[in-house]
Write a protein that binds this DNA or RNA. Sequence first.
RNA 1: GCCCCCAUCGUCUAGUGGCCCAGGACGCCGCCCUUUCAAGGCGGUAACGGGGAUUCGAAUUCCCCUGGGGGCACCA
Length: 470
Amino acid sequence: MTVRVRFSPAPSGSLHVGSARTALFNWLYARHTGGTFLLRIEDTDQSRSTDTSAAGIEDTLTWLGLDWDEPVVRQSQRFAEYRAAAEQLLDEGRAYACSCTPEEIKARNEAAVAAGRSPGYDGHCRELSDAERQQLAAEGRPRTLRFRTPETGASTFVDLVRGEVRVEWSTITDFVILRSDGTPLFFLANAVDDLEMRISHVIRGEDLLDSTHRVLAVRAALSPEPPPQFAHLPLIVGPDRAKLSKRHGAVALEEFRAAGYLPDALRNYLALLGWAPEDGRELLDADELVAAFELSRVTHAAAAFDHEKLDWMNGEWIRRLTLPELEAAALPLARARFGETFDLALLRRALALGQGRATTLGALLDQADFLFIPDDQFRVRPDAWAEVTTDRVDEILAAVEAHLEARDWGEPVDLRGVIEALGLKARQAMPAVYTAIEGRRAGLPVFESIELLGRDRSLQRVRAARAQRA
RNA sequence: GCCCCCAUCGUCUAGUGGCCCAGGACGCCGCCCUUUCAAGGCGGUAACGGGGAUUCGAAUUCCCCUGGGGGCACCA
């Protein structure tokens, strides 16, 4: 069978890590099988302006390395087709017009819950006669189209990751497929689009598992063609096992991008959330992921998003970069921090110095900022001196200043002799030097940093620090 | 309330009846290396939620319980 999968994000403007993972698994499956990967923006709610946010999603997917094969489909451009499909279902008796107002439904739902019954549409308009419907229409009441759900039996389908799932129809109430303003709900839009786009597989989050029965019912009513096969991915949760949200830290892919995470790292990490290759490898590039990916190996339980493991993995990917690649990845972030004009050669040297120890590009650039901040604006971080534990700071800085004045700048910087002469261990004395030079107690290796700064700027930093403490 | 899904170290996971007194990775702890902190190297800590059943044998199969998550909209 030819695989055609589609990723269908809501046009929210950014890509939540959960959606990104769904996109990735769709893409991996398509690429692994040699199938087609499609992008369809779900915007059946006309009230939103979706073009800008859709462009943002496309940009982020591209950054992640997930390329799609055919022009992007926007559901907002296809309202006429959805309406025609709904009317067809109405004519065939698979759907019926409902004249209940939202207020009435809400009130009856609340009453049902209060009485200990389940919420959901109560079938109020299900069996009205034609005369009654005409009467209601004449009263100017709203008209939505509801899908007529079977009263008996069960809905079953085989989920590609979970196996057979089964729900009694009696627990699924009649649902709206066309709003009173004529726009569709996603049950209908998805069924129509998946049919038209000849979608063969739908891979999406487990939160949609129950709604699949409804999509499948609409699809079956619309066409005798076999429906797509469904696969539901386990959800991604926060450290507290609750739905991953803003209070757990970054959740939008754009935030990770801005913080200096590499697309390779994010793709790699996300792929391992709910899936693992048979051979247990953890560090995999795009090609390796595609080659190893199997839907049957997707796990069933929700996975917690672990920022620390992502950090580790991002560091691994930073270390794999060549210097030109590292520079290319860091440049946009550097511009955002240091402005359009800064010493590019200096940045290159700083990146080379920090590559072996970085977890994110953002943190790396933070550590390098002392090189790019103009000397008259340079300040030691407020809490830095407090973290220096020795009480001989002034002595140390005086000795360092004397050394920097006298030394031969053609030689590599080495302060070890200076520290030893004071009878101090490096562990005791170095934080003071870091603080004076870099403005923070720890950061890029300080000897090399002094060389990057040069004689004048280094001396100026040490003198400023001494003056500040005097 | 009703329905559905799920359940191995703190976290991501391997494991589909004996190879498992459960393996890897992140984190954590210790040691080494070392110009502070990192990074790196080496080592260590740590789990099959509970109870039944099937079987010569169960992390792996079945049932119940418990726990967690999701769903029940004119959102997607």
